[in-house]
Amino acid sequence: MPIVEAKALTKVFRRPDKGPGLGGSVKHLFARRFTDKVAVDHVDLSIEAGEAVAYVGPNGAGKSTTVKLLSGILVPTSGEVRIDGLHPQRDRMTVAHRIGVLFGQRTQLWWDLPVAESLAVLRDLYGIDRATYRKRLARFDEVLALGEILPVMGRKLSLGQRMRADLAAALLHAPRVVYLDEPTIGLDLAVKDRVREFFRSVRDEGTTVMLTSHDLADIEGFCRRLVIIDEGRIIFDGDLEAVKDRFARERILHIETARPAPLETLRASLPGAEVTVEDTPVRYAVRFDRFAMTAGQVVTALAGLAELVDIRVDEPSIEDVIRRVYSGELVLG
């Protein structure tokens, strides 16, 4: 049985339809008009226990709304959600013990209390015994270096410290399912690395993770499954590596030669690749399909024609693929 299941999940928000300026606002007082905005449109999703799912989409696509529906925060307009077979509104208390939620833009720490006290409140709310609590804190400390921030007041935390503390807060009760909504937003690279390492340790313990992020580096090497949402609809749901193999198969080899080389000769030696001159006449870019030829073959062919001073290979990331999907250039599935 899937641990998270959504069937024809739909959320419609009603927005007041006001004209511009004060006149529009006054008119709205007397003749109320609303437009319906469909934020999530018949989403079907089924996540098995232990899966790590990346949930991506452009701004306003309905990602956060889906997460709020799947965690029982919002009541769906139609369709249904089951968490471990339970109804998130009817069984709110039981479901709360099984899910953990992190919204990167929000904090659940107390502003006026040290982090340690905020975590202690959560310990009591979730009824975690003291020995288990200490064990979990020690484990979080290994990856998140919590120790140094435990005595700091919530309001004095830097963004990176806050996110580390919030991650601990979201996972303290060892939930079976974790929703991470933009968990690395605004973090510097060192903290991002640490946070990503923490995600991996959580996943490796068998926790089901649904990760929403604009930073696709969060997803690569972490999630096996990719779900893309656009305008409230799921437009792709499948294996992340398969998408990369299919759409991110192109490689670009950048070379620098000692002296300008004849472009025609280079092109003739590499049929099937595309050779272009870059900013200076000694730099070239060779675009090729990694399933048609290897980087080694390209280098060998070029080395016979010119003296290579420098080489570098660019690999398109899943980011490029998804950017092309957003812009409508690429249709997956």
Binding site: W110, W111, D112, L113, E117, S118, A120, V121, R123, D124, L125, Y126, G127
Partner: peptide, 19 residues
Amino acid sequence: MRGYRALIRATARAALAYR
């Protein structure tokens, strides 16, 4: 009950921040 008691204690402490 333990959770609610924790909330009472935490608010009582946080109230000090407003002294």
